[in-house]
Design a protein around this nucleic acid. Sequence first.
DNA 1: GCCGGCGATACCGTGGGGGTATGGAAACGC
DNA 2: GCGTTTCCATACCCCCACGGTATCGCCGGC
Lengths: 275, 275
Amino acid sequence: METRELRYFVAVAEELHFGRAAQRLGMAQPPLSRAISQLERRLGVNLLHRTSRSVTLTEAGAVLLREGRAALGAVEAAERRTRRASENSGLVLVSKAGATGELLPKLLDAYAAEPGAVPIEVVLCGAGQQEALLRDGRADVALLHLPFDSTAGLDAEELTTESQVLVMPAGHELSTRASVRMSDLAGLALPRWPELDGTYLQGPGPEVHDATQLLQLISLGRAVTVLPESVRASLHEGLTTVPVLDAPLVTTVIAWPPHSRSLALAGLVQAATRL
Amino acid sequence: METRELRYFVAVAEELHFGRAAQRLGMAQPPLSRAISQLERRLGVNLLHRTSRSVTLTEAGAVLLREGRAALGAVEAAERRTRRASENSGLVLVSKAGATGELLPKLLDAYAAEPGAVPIEVVLCGAGQQEALLRDGRADVALLHLPFDSTAGLDAEELTTESQVLVMPAGHELSTRASVRMSDLAGLALPRWPELDGTYLQGPGPEVHDATQLLQLISLGRAVTVLPESVRASLHEGLTTVPVLDAPLVTTVIAWPPHSRSLALAGLVQAATRL
DNA sequence: GCCGGCGATACCGTGGGGGTATGGAAACGC
DNA sequence: GCGTTTCCATACCCCCACGGTATCGCCGGC
């Protein structure tokens, strides 16, 4: 199977529409139709249920969509990492915007002080994006927060564990409490984070994709939220916190794609675990 | 990058010889040369140091070899899993030959008794091969033994933990001891297992690649070894064991590629964790 | 200095990937 | 019910790029 065929199939499977998929791929619809049928014939597998009115995935098609995306990611990663290896341009570290508190600057300082340190480029992204960046080679190493992020398919080392606090505007009704429990938060407008596929579940509460955005919404009184206690270091005026006793503990880990330990990466991980 | 180009590069990088690589690929040498230079030009990266006498990898080339193999594995996996999904032919479970004792039959029985169980094909392979089989889609789920195998890049659930015993012929000088320590084994002919790349380190002791082979060598008095205590259930006459007090504990885990939880796989994992 | 080995270059033929035009089936409007 | 629209498949054509053969250029060994 060629990556070209995979790209074609993924486009069709995502659009469920040959015309739009062809447009997205910058080609005409007939060759795309032909390419997909050829792929099906070569695999000996029906990937799509077609009527002249609609296209849907077969079970095998769904498998190829999932596995094909991963394979395309791996190919892209190979390409990007090769390019970067030739430029010798250090490491790319990705973290959620606004979610690392003091840890990230401390890590960067500690690592930079090591002999043989390479430049570290820091990329901040929205929630749930780090894994995709690692997977397709746009990043080499990530700071993740369990249990929100998943380390599935990654190597990881634990760095810190912390409890969580409720973040709210200073005048909020719960702000005078010494502590709260999750049950006290029932009915409050907790923000909704994107799912793995980038969409949002239905529900009350605003849709957010990074911490800055979220904190601003809280300042405006449009939301409250539960976050790791380290955010207290970076709160503006007008926001206050109280501990949430029974919120899950948050573990910050440093994670990287398996089998891609360069010397530089090993040094960074070592510096991180020594913090 | 097309998978064809990747296959070409991997062949050349492994052979370090255009002629042999071309032969392996079933093509003539000139188009291969051209394809590789095109790849280098398109990537904007030098992958090979060439003299008219020899070919070696550049640093970037080494990265592309590593990442390219993984990417090709992912593409193959996509293809195989798609085919298998269309035939609806159950799951393929891989384990080291002779290393699972009672656990494997118990797991298969327990799972088969569940409603909606699919057929499980069992593949037994040599040490250190399971990960490759999972990676390229020839298997869906594996039984691994920590700390010998690695779960890097896989999802896993722990099943059992056990201590290790020394396995030796009945008349062996240590067979009368109630227990031994690792230091007692210094100088004995411990067998050598293959490394991740399938080669063997230099050293005394025979080269082995599965437990059956190993037990036979022990019967012949050509080796002794340290294995998880569950092997005692499957030892023939003439072999005996004593506990090794300070050998690392062995954890058996069930592992699968991340993000490939089919319903059938989820059922199998659940059955395994309930054992 | 000649030969042998190896990678690069030159040149050619063909298959397949991509384009346009059109067919054909199904849903929708009136 | 018939025209219209929508959307995938088919028919046909063109051209590029992939692969093959022949040959060159370089280098090391006998």
